[in-house]
Each structure stands twice: as C-alpha cells, then as structure tokens.
Computed example of a mutant assay.
Amino acid sequence: MIIGMGSDLCNIERIQNSLDRFGTRFENRVFTEIELRKAARRPHTKAGTLAKRFAAKEAFSKAVGTGFKAGVFMKDIGVVNSPSGAPTLALTGGARERLDALVPVGHAAKVHLTLTDDHPWAMAFVVIEALPSE
C-alpha cells in the first residue's frame, strides 16, 4: 500500500547561486558526504547534481507529511544508488524515525525515488510503499 507521496521542482540556478554565495557552508548544511562526493565527480554539472538531491529531500519531507520540522532535517535524507544504479534514499535521525512511525505494524517501508533535470529545472518524485513483512 502507498503511505506517502511527494514531489519537488528545484531551480538549478538557485542552487548555483547558493553555492556561489555560501560555498561549503551551504553544502555541509544540506548534503551528505556521499552526495558531495558524487557532485565533485561532475564539476560541469555540480549544481544540477545537487539540485536533484535537494529536490529529493524536499519530496521526501512532503511524502512523510512533515516538511523540515518535527525533527526531519535535510542531512538526514541522503540520495544513494542501489547496486543497479537506481537512486534511492538513505535515511537517518528524524527522517528515519518519521518514516518508521508511518509504517503499519507487520509492514516494511520501501522508498521509490526518481530524479530528472533539464536546465534550469531539477525534479524529484518520491513514493513510499508499505509492504507486508515476511
């Protein structure tokens, strides 16, 4: 069963402006080390890479119904790749706690994530599914 769904559209130029203005202070406040390493490997599209991840964080916060309050922080939501290369989310802290609170007893959460960008826009869509535990 679907227990949450969220989407976000992010302007890549807005992320570039934040990188130019605040630099590593912005990066370290918002993004995980894994996300920053991925972006560093893409110097020509760094802002786009980070904008997609920013959108994923926003989309997840909408899917769990909190936004960035109730203990859910941006750095608790990290975009990682599964072994197949598909993007998914690694959750810690308040983001993990909020997700766990939504999942019905006897079920486990599966987070689906899709990312795309076409300059100047980046988009993310999150669907949270509760699957019966075996």
Rank of each mutant, 00 (worst) to 15 (best):
M1W: 07
I2L: 15
I3Y: 10
M5A: 11
S7D: 04
L9D: 00
I12A: 10
E13N: 15
R14F: 06
R14D: 12
I15F: 10
I15E: 10
Q16N: 14
S18T: 11
L19V: 11
R21V: 06
T24R: 15
R25Q: 14
N28Q: 14
N28P: 12
N28R: 13
R29S: 15
V30A: 05
E33L: 13
E33R: 14
I34G: 14
E35K: 12
L36Y: 11
R37A: 12
P43Q: 12
P43T: 12
K46H: 11
K46F: 14
A47W: 11
L50G: 06
L50S: 06
L50W: 05
A51Y: 07
F54D: 02
A55K: 04
A55M: 08
K57A: 04
A59G: 03
F60N: 07
G65I: 10
A70T: 10
K75E: 13
G78Y: 02
V79Y: 00
S82P: 01
S82Y: 03
S84W: 00
G85K: 05
A86W: 01
T88C: 07
A90N: 09
T92G: 00
E97I: 04
L99S: 01
L99D: 04
V103A: 04
P104S: 04
V105H: 08
H107F: 06
A109N: 03
A109F: 00
K110S: 06
V111C: 09
V111L: 09
L113E: 02
T114Y: 01
T116I: 05
T116P: 02
D117L: 05
D118Q: 13
D118R: 05
M123D: 03
A124V: 01
F125I: 09
V126Y: 08
I128L: 07
S133I: 11
S133C: 11
